[in-house]
Nucleic acid binder design. Structure first.
Lengths: 336, 336
DNA sequence: TTGTAAGCGTTATCAA
DNA sequence: TTGATAACGCTTACAA
C-alpha cells in the first residue's frame, strides 16, 4: 500500500499540515522539523497523491499537445521537443493526434482540457472562428505553434522570409520560372508561404511563380506534384515540405529527370531525413525545437502567472516569426 | 465557473448521489429521474471533475507510453497507434521519450506511474533484472512491446522468423555470404535477430553470416555500416532497421556501388518511408499498428479485470511472435 | 429507487 | 512555527 501524508506525519510526530508545508514550502517550517519530515518521507517512500493535490489546488501539472500527424517527421520532432521541455519543467504531457482530421481538433482540445493546465495546438487546421470559439469554450489556456489567430498566444516561424531566401537563391542560380507545390489549403504555413511568394516575386521583379495547387503533405503528394512540375516548364520548384520534396525527387528520377541538373528543388522544414536522401535536400530549416520549447515556456509562464496572481507588466504572449535558415545542399544548382 | 454535480442535483431536484448514479450507472436509476438529471447536466454543460473521480475511485483513466525515440519513424508509428487505440477506449495517454537513454526508463516509468492506470514500455533497453525490479516497485501495471522479460505481459513480433524469411530470400537469389549490420546491443529485437541468424544459417547450411557489430539505429549508423559491408566481401546485407538501410544505400551510392546490382539490402520494420526511397526497400514488415493496439487492449483488459475483481479463467497476458512479412521490393536482386 | 454520509489525500485558512 | 479543520468534487456503502 502506498503511504500518505498521514503516515509521514505519524512517523515524524508532527501534524499532517506540517508535512504538506515541509515538502512544498520548506522555508515556512523550522529546519529541525523539516528534516524529521523529510527523513520520514524518505523511509516511507512517500509520494504525494497527484489527484488529491489537483483537487485541492485546481492545478494538474499536465500539458496537452494536439498535432495533425505523428508520422510526419516534423510533428514527431515537435512532440519530442515539447515533452522533453515540459518534463524538465515538471509537467507531463498528453499527446493527441488528429490524423489530419480537422473535426478532431476541437474534440481533442475539449477532452484534454479537463485534465491539463494548458494545451499546445500545433498547426491546427480549423478556421479562425472555430479556434476563437474553442478558446472561449474550452476552459483552458491555449497556445499555438505555426499558426496565428487574432491575439491568441502563438509561436511561429518566419515563413515569408523563408520563401524570400529560397527564391533569391534560385534566382541567383539563374532560375526565372519557378513552380510551387503547395500543402494543405487549411495550413496556415501554406498560406504564409503563398503570401511570401507573391511579395518575393514582386521584389525580384523578373521571376514568375507557377502555383500548382494543393497536395497531401507527404511523399505521395510530392510524387503527384512532380508530373505537374515537369509539365509546367518550370526549371525549379518549391515544395511545401521535405516529405513532398522527397516524393518529387523519386518521381523525377523515375521519369529520367536529373536533379539538380535539369530541375532544382527547394523545400521546407529540414527534417532529419533531409540530409539522408541523395542528393541531400536544399531546404528552408524551420527551428522546430525552438518553436516547441518556446511554446512550452510561454504556456508554463501563463500558468504560473495566473497562479501567483499576475503582478508586474503584462507578459508578451507570443513569439512571432522566429528566424528560418536556407540550407543549401544537393538539390539546387545552376539553370541550364 | 465550471458546474459540479451539486449544481446538477439542485437543478434536477435530486440528491448528488443520484446524479452520480444517473450518469455512470444509468440502470440503477428510474427512467424519469435519469432523464431529469441528463437534461440538467446538458443545460449546465456539466463535466465530471476527473481528479475528484480519481480520488474517489483510485483510477485515473490514463495510460503512459515510454519509448526510446520519437524521431525514429517506427516509434512514431507505435505512438500514433497507441494513442488512437487508447482514446477509442476512453483513455488519454502520456508520452515520454527516453532519447535512447537507458537510465531514463525507470525514472520515467516511476514518474508516470503516479498518474496512470498502466504503462506501455516500448522496446525498453534496461536489463531483465532492472525491469523486474521496476515492475515490483513502480506500483502500476506494465506491458512490454518488442521485448520480453520473465512472465511480464508483452507483445512481440516474430523476429526470428523474419530473419529466416530474409535469409531464404537472399539465398534463393544466389547469395551465400551475408553481412549483418546490427542495432543497439541492448535491443531485444537485435538479440532476437542475432539468434535467428544463427538458426537460419544452420537450417540453410551453405550460407555464412558476417556479424559486423552494433550501429546506431539511424541513418548515420547505416552510413557507417556500409563501408564495413563493402570491405567484408558480402554480396548482401541485413540491416537492423529501415533507417540504417537508407543510410547504407546512400553510402553505397557515394562509393559507386550499385544496389541491387552489386549489393542486395534487406532491412526490418517497413516504415512509411521504405517505399518512398529509391530503390524501394526490401524489408521485413513488423506489424507495428497491431503490436500497439494489442498492447493497449491487453493493458486495458488487465485494468478492467482488476477493477471488477477477476472472475473467470486467468486471461492470457501476452501475445508473442506476431507474424512478420517480407516485402520484396527494389533493394534485392540476383547475385552476380 | 433515492438520500445521507463517510471517505479519497491534499492544500490552505485561521488560531494558537 | 505549528495544528485543527474546512474545503476540493466525486463515488459508494448503508439506510430509508
Amino acid at each position: 500500500m502506498r503511504s500518505t501524508a498521514r503516515d509521514v506525519a505519524k512517523m515524524a510526530g508532527v501534524s499532517i499540515s506540517t508535512v504538506s508545508r515541509a515538502l512544498s514550502a520548506p522555508q515556512k517550517v523550522a529546519t529541525g522539523t523539516r528534516q524529521k519530515v523529510e527523513q520520514a518521507a524518505r523511509t516511507l517512500g512517500y509520494d504525494p497523491n497527484l489527484a488529491a493535490r489537483e483537487l485541492a489546488t485546481g492545478r494538474t501539472g499536465n500539458l496537452g499537445l494536439v498535432i495533425p500527424d505523428l508520422e510526419n517527421p516534423f510533428f514527431a520532432s515537435v512532440t519530442k521537443a515539447v515533452q522533453a521541455r515540459a518534463r524538465a519543467a515538471g509537467h507531463a504531457v498528453f499527446v493527441a493526434d488528429t490524423d489530419e482530421d480537422t473535426h478532431q481538433e476541437p474534440r481533442l482540445v475539449r477532452s484534454l482540457a479537463r485534465q491539463v493546465d494548458g494545451v499546445i495546438l500545433c498547426a491546427p487546421r480549423v478556421t479562425d472562428a472555430e479556434l476563437a470559439a474553442l478558446e472561449a469554450a474550452a476552459h483552458t489556456r491555449m497556445i499555438l505553434i505555426n499558426r496565428t489567430c487574432g491575439d491568441m498566444p502563438s509561436v511561429t516561424a518566419d515563413h515569408v522570409d523563408g520563401v524570400r531566401q529560397a527564391l533569391r537563391h534560385l534566382r541567383a542560380l539563374g532560375h526565372r520560372h519557378i513552380a510551387y507545390a503547395g500543402g494543405p489549403s487549411r495550413s496556415w504555413a501554406d498560406q504564409q508561404r503563398r503570401a511570401g511568394l507573391t511579395t518575393a516575386a514582386e521584389e525580384l521583379g523578373d521571376v514568375t511563380v507557377d502555383d500548382l495547387g494543393a497536395f497531401a503533405p507527404v511523399f505521395s503528394g510530392g510524387m503527384a506534384a512532380a508530373d505537374l512540375v515537369l509539365a509546367s516548364g518550370a526549371t525549379a520548384v518549391l515544395a511545401y515540405n521535405d516529405l513532398m520534396a522527397i516524393g518529387l525527387l523519386a518521381r523525377a528520377r523515375e521519369r529520367g529527370v536529373e536533379v539538380p541538373g535539369e530541375l532544382s528543388v527547394v523545400s521546407f522544414d529540414d527534417i532529419p531525413l533531409a540530409v539522408a536522401v541523395s542528393p541531400a535536400l536544399t531546404t528552408v530549416a524551420v527551428p522546430v525545437g525552438m518553436l516547441a520549447r518556446t511554446a512550452v515556456d510561454l504556456l508554463t509562464e501563463m500558468i504560473d502567472e495566473e497562479r501567483t496572481g499576475a503582478v508586474g507588466p503584462p507578459a508578451r504572449r507570443s513569439r512571432l516569426d522566429l528566424p528560418v535558415e536556407l540550407k543549401v545542399r544537393g538539390t539546387t544548382g545552376p539553370r541550364r
